[in-house]
Each structure stands twice: as structure tokens, then as C-alpha cells.
């Protein structure tokens, strides 16, 4: 029944989003807000003008990349919760190249993005090596690596790159992804060229997974490690590679912040949250490149729309965090959605 499972692939996320928004509405109702007014404000905050549209797309670029990072590792049967840490390391590397290297933009930008990717890949490959060599579960090591990244990047900024305001200096003009043109057509939003980098990355992920031998091996390891081993695939090598590539996507997500949105890196008191959102994006997008783009569009939109929802309907933006959490729950509990669907179907027939 390939058709039915294909249908479910679309239905589960759609129903999950619906249920998430529904329960979010109920929470608003119980706490004395106007859910209809709030959701109208939310959607106006996403589509109500080119400024909001620009902001949504800007928000999407790191989300797409962190979603790709999680999804790529998932395909090899690995759960990369360390996107947050790899993102910080990539952010720092991109800003470092942006500040200390002199080059024309045509070289400088790719170099900075590449540096971010390499830094993320190195950071990501550590849990990969630990998994391949010592059979340590990657979930725990990636969480630990997140904190190591947070404190280490802060320390490096504090000691070597500090500028007034608990941050680094601005990157050079030649490394910047910011675009006056894109800003001017979106009523001066913070939109930058990063979205192009993100979309290219999505194509690369699709091509790698589905059009190369490496991708075939990676997916085979994800389906069944023992069978892959038996077929002569080097499982250890694939685990390390998968984590490295996943980390590279995450690192480039960091360069979106460093080269695009902020143009510098701050001393972070806590995590950015983009890496954790990547888990939600990948889950919702069923770990496919196109799904990740759609998932990032939804969550990026929700996050930007939430600002309008707060100013018009007075609902705290955190409600959207709750809705996103609920959506993750329902996608994770697809068992429940299947069960509900069966009940509804049966009810319709009888």
C-alpha cells in the first residue's frame, strides 16, 4: 500500500499542525485571551505586507539549515541534538573569517560560509567518532557538546575578539550577506542573501542522499546497520561522515546569523534555540529536503507572526513555543494520529 503511506506522510504533519493550533487556541481561551483575534493577528503578521514576508524568509534560512542538519543525521539513524552547539561553532568561525580575512566579496563570502561548515563538521564529527569507535550514544554526547560549545565560544570571544557590548566587532563589508536591495524591496526588513545559501544546501542534501553512492550507503546504514555491514558497507565511516555533514549544515546555519542577520557574534548567555527548532522542522518535514523547507516556512512564519499576535491581541509570544512543542508531540505520536484516522474512516463507512 505505497499510496496510503504516501498519503499519511502528508496527513500526519497537517493534522499535527491543526491539533497544535487547536490546543494553543484552547489554552488562550482558558487564560482569557481571544484565540480568533490572536490567530488573525498571527496570520496578518506573516502575510500582511512585504516587511513581514521579508522577516519570515530571513527567519527561515537558519531554520532550513538546522532542519537539514537534523534530517540528514536522521537518515543515517542518528539523532543530532547537537545542532545548537555546531551552529555556535560555525557562527564563530564565520565571524572570525569575516573580521580577520581580507578578500573581495566573491571569495570572502564563500570562504566564511565554508569556514562555518568546516567548524560545524569538526564539532559534529566528535560525537560521530565516539559513536563509531566507542558505541557511545550520540544523543548524550551531542547534548554535552552543546554546552562545551556554548562556554568555549563565549570564552574565545571574551579573550580574543571582544568589542564593546559583550560582542565581537562587525564583520567586513566584503563578507556580509546583507543586501540593501533585498531590504529595500521588503520595506527595510532584515532580509539577506542567506536564503539562497539555505536553498542551495537543501538541493545539496537531496542530491547527496538520493543521487550518490555515499547517500545510498548512508541511507542503508540508517535502515539496517547489520545488513549494511554484511553487504560490505563501512558502517563506522558512514556514521562519522553523516555526523560531519550534518554538523556542516548546522555550522552554515550559524553563518546565517553571523554573516547575515547580526553581522557579529554576541557572548551568548544561553542557546539560540535555532538548533532545537531544527528538530521540530526536520520531524515535521519527514526528513526530506522539500519537507524541511516547508517546515521551516511554517515555523519561521509562526515565530514572526507571534510578534504581531503579541502587539495586537496581547498574547505572549511564548504561546507559539507551546504550539510548536505540541506539534512535535503529535508528529512523534503519529501512532495516535493513525489511530484517530482509523476511527474517523471507520465512522465514515459504517
Amino acid at each position: 500500500m505505497p499510496n496510503k503511506s504516501n498519503k499519511m506522510k502528508f496527513l500526519v504533519p497537517l493534522i499535527s499542525v491543526f491539533l497544535g493550533l487547536l490546543i494553543g487556541g484552547i489554552i488562550m481561551l482558558i487564560s482569557g485571551y481571544q484565540p480568533v483575534e490572536a490567530y488573525v493577528a498571527l496570520f496578518q503578521g506573516i502575510f500582511g505586507g512585504s516587511y513581514y514576508f521579508g522577516e519570515t524568509i530571513r527567519q527561515m534560512s537558519p531554520l532550513i539549515l538546522s532542519g537539514l542538519a537534523v534530517a540528514f543525521a536522521f537518515r543515517t539513524g542518528l539523532f543530532n541534538i547537537g545542532v545548537e552547539g555546531q551552529l555556535l561553532v560555525g557562527w564563530l568561525a564565520a565571524v572570525y573569517v569575516g573580521i580577520f580575512v581580507d578578500a573581495p566579496a566573491i571569495i570572502h563570502i564563500p570562504l566564511a560560509v565554508l569556514a562555518a561548515g568546516v567548524a560545524g563538521a569538526l564539532w559534529g564529527s566528535v560525537p560521530g567518532i565516539l559513536k563509531a569507535r566507542f558505541k557511545v550514544h550520540e544523543v548524550i554526547t551531542t547534548i554535552m557538546m552543546n554546552y562545551i560549545a556554548l562556554y568555549t565560544t563565549n570564552e574565545i570571544i571574551r579573550n580574543y575578539m571582544l568589542a564593546p557590548g559583550e560582542r565581537t566587532e562587525n564583520i567586513k563589508e566584503s563578507a556580509s550577506l546583507a543586501s540593501p536591495f533585498l531590504q529595500s524591496i521588503t520595506e527595510y526588513s532584515t532580509l539577506h542573501f542567506g536564503i539562497i545559501v539555505a536553498l542551495i544546501a537543501a538541493v545539496i542534501m537531496w542530491f547527496l542522499l538520493w543521487r550518490t553512492t555515499l547517500g545510498y550507503e548512508l541511507r542503508a546504514v540508517g535502515f539496517n546497520q547489520h545488513a549494511s555491514q554484511y553487504a560490505g558497507i563501512n558502517v563506522s565511516k558512514n556514521i562519522v561522515l553523516s555526523m560531519a555533514i550534518s554538523g556542516a549544515f548546522a555550522g552554515i546555519a550559524g553563518s546565517m546569523e553571523g554573516l547575515g542577520t547580526y553581522q557579529y557574534m554576541t557572548i551568548n548567555a544561553g542557546f539560540t534555540g535555532v538548533g532545537f527548532d531544527g528538530i521540530a522542522v526536520a520531524l515535521l518535514g519527514a526528513n526530506s529536503a522539500i519537507g524541511v523547507i516547508l517546515g521551516a516556512a511554517l515555523f519561521g512564519g509562526l515565530k514572526i507572526g507571534a510578534l504581531n499576535m503579541q502587539s495586537i491581541a496581547g498574547v505572549p509570544t511564548e504561546l507559539i513555543g507551546v504550539v510548536i512543542a505540541l506539534i512535535i508531540f503529535f508528529v512523534a505520536c503519529s501512532y495516535l494520529v493513525h489511530w484517530l484516522m482509523n476511527r474517523v474512516n471507520r465512522g465514515g463507512k459504517i
Partner: peptide, 20 residues
């Protein structure tokens, strides 16, 4: 459900709901 995913969702939910 995947226990790790569910745990991640718990973290999101708690943070969002508590501040809300």
C-alpha cells in the same frame, strides 16, 4: 513515540508554558 523526541517536546512545552 520516540522517547528522545517526546523529551525534546517536553522541554519546549515546559519552557513555553512556564513563561506564558
Amino acid at each position: 513515540a520516540d522517547q528522545v523526541v517526546s523529551g525534546v517536546a517536553i522541554n519546549f512545552l515546559a519552557a513555553g508554558l512556564a513563561i506564558f
